[in-house]
Design a protein around this nucleic acid. Structure first.
Lengths: 153, 153
DNA sequence: TTGAGTTCCTATCTTTCCTATATGATCAGT
DNA sequence: ACTGATCATATAGGAAAGATAGGAACTCAA
């Protein structure tokens, strides 16, 4: 039950955009270098974020990416789902593969498990949606403040 | 974020053991047929459940499996973790792969994400542990009672 | 208009993990 | 000793994840 690389990259990329408050858009290349993400892989992730309406892009010589809304309005669950696909509603119990007959003898047990797992997914989503991108920004700055001064003394 | 076949099979197998109140142990073959699980695959799962101390086995001609404790004391989270490995404490952020130097520049962001995901795992586990095997038994019987009578009218 | 730099898109490759199977060893009872 | 079950390890096959390749489309500046 690990977080996928895709998911982690998505959060890191969005966090990078949120922390880089700049007039000009941020280029994928810059994000890739700062966050140590393979550039070609990052392009897919940024496209997913863009298709989900979380990020805007502009092309051409001074192109790049920026957040489509304030960081406080972007939930971590939005980022994960944009990149990894929807969390809920994808589970097909192993008995539902027969296309023709809808008999499904074991359905009661499978409905049970399906419901149980739906609860798990809800809990995951709820937890992810407790944190906004703005929260992550603040926490990042707090952590950095605790660390960087160590090297200045 | 689907439930793996392993996880589903594990729950189904345990549920089968719990519902089959019998003096003699239940054989893997019987479980496999009832729950539509490939027998050889089921053997792995039953072994995992046994190693976790959730199930007891006896060999020989009248061998088979039975629950090692009352169904009310077996949590669904126990079943899942027995079969799929521990849910928490496995995540390695993608920057922690360098064996030698412990500099880890991006550590603040990665610690952040790691903490966030730990919360998600906790939420999953908490949800899974809200239900015991005995609960699943009761729910199964309730669902079956609602269904079977339909065919008797 | 041309060229450079960027995003956008599709396809492919590589690796890892999941599912399932195969084979045989080990054990218990008749 | 024979039968029928669990136990253990190895491995095949396929799906998914991770990463890469190549070029089309677009924007702006010189």
């Amino acid at each position: 039950m690990d977080l996928s690389a895709k998911g982690e990259y998505g959060i890191l990329a969005a966090l990078d955009l949120a922390l880089t408050r700049d007039a000009t858009p941020v280029q994928a290349k810059a994000i890739a270098e700062r966050q140590c993400i393979p550039i070609k892989f990052l392009e897919h992730i940024l496209r997913a974020l863009r298709n989900a309406g979380l990020v805007e892009s502009s092309r051409g010589i001074h192109g790049g990416y920026r957040l489509a809304k304030p960081a406080a309005e972007i939930l971590v669950g939005d980022l994960i789902q944009a990149v990894e696909g929807p969390i809920a509603g994808t589970h097909r119990p192993h008995g539902t593969r027969n296309g023709s007959n809808g008999k499904s003898l074991h359905s009661s047990r499978e409905i049970l498990i399906q419901t149980l797992w739906a609860d798990v997914q809800d809990a995951m989503l709820e937890t992810l949606n407790k944190t906004t991108l703005a929260d992550l920004c603040r926490q990042t700055r707090e952590l950095d403040e605790q660390r960087v001064p160590m090297y200045h003394i």
